[in-house]
């Protein structure tokens, strides 16, 4: 019996290939689904870009700094607290 199977190239071999194909197809399906989820949430944020291009905060920080300098840092702490708060 064993000899017969071995001679035919092995039913076990075919079974292994079928399983391997299903596993690979399943994995690829999983990758396709996850890539579509990732693709939908694709974003470029200011922090992702070098040299502060598109990051308004750096320009505004310079403006704050210049105003603080003109007033000799008067009320600086108070203003910084206001700027950090979410709502004015």
């Amino acid at each position: 019996m064993l000899n017969k199977f071995n001679k035919k190239g092995g039913i076990g071999d075919i079974f292994a290939w079928v399983v391997a194909t299903i596993v690979i197809a399943g994995l690829l399906f999983f990758f396709l689904v996850s890539s579509s989820i990732l693709a939908k949430n694709k974003k470029i944020l200011p922090a992702d870009i070098d040299l502060n291009i598109g990051d308004g905060s750096s320009t505004l920080e310079v403006k704050n700094f210049l105003s603080y300098t003109i007033t000799n840092n008067k009320d600086r702490q108070k203003i910084e607290n206001i700027l950090e708060e979410k709502n004015v």
Partner: peptide, 22 residues
């Protein structure tokens, strides 16, 4: 799928506009 979907760059665009207005 990945490159066919658009990439959201509005945050950068909005910050640039704020930059210019300020």
């Amino acid at each position: 799928i990945f490159y066919g979907n658009p990439c959201d760059i509005r945050a950068v665009e909005a910050n640039l506009l704020i930059d210019k207005i300020s």
